[in-house]
Amino acid sequence: MMEVNEHDTSQYNELIAFRLGEQEFCVDIMSVRDIRGWTPTTPLPHSPDYVKGVINLRGSVLPVIDLSARLGFRSTEPTARHVIIVTQVGSQSVGLLVDAVSDILTITSETIQPTPDVASELARCFMKGVLAIEGRMISLIGLDSVIAATHEGTGTLN
C-alpha cells in the first residue's frame, strides 16, 4: 500500500480490489454502496448470460452481473463464499458478482497505467487502466461502461 499524504487528498483515490479467478481488479470506492454475500437471484427472462438475475436489496430490485462472464471470462458458479459488490453510477445501482474482495488501495492517479494492448477487446472497453501494486497487477474497472453496456445488452428502450 502507498503512503497517504494527508494534505493533498485530491490526488489520491481509494479503490476496492477484488479477485476474479486468478486475476485482480478494482473499482473506485466512492461508487461502492455495499458488499454482501451471495444470495440466490431471480433470473430475468431473455437476459444476457452475464446477468445473473435480480435480488432484493433493502426493498429495491438490484440486478446482479457476473463480472467474470461480462469481461469474457468463464461464467461463475456462485457459492455462499462469493461476494456481490453493490455499486452505484448515477441513479442506477448494479451488483457485481466477484470471487472475493481482497484489498482497499490508496493510489495517486499517476499510478494508473494505460491498459496493455494484449487484453481482449471486450475486456479493454471495461478497463480504465492497470495498476502495479507490490508486484501484483490490478486492473481498474470503469463502472459506467459496465452499467451502460448492461443496458444495451437488454435491448431496452430507455
Binding site: 430475468l44 431473455h46 426493498g59 430490485v61 431496452t156 428502450l157
Partner: peptide
C-alpha cells in the same frame, strides 16, 4: 417495484 430503475425493460415482464 420497478425493474427499469436499475436495469431496463424486459420482454414479457
Amino acid at each position: 417495484k420497478s425493474l427499469e430503475t436499475n436495469y431496463g425493460h424486459v420482454f414479457g415482464v
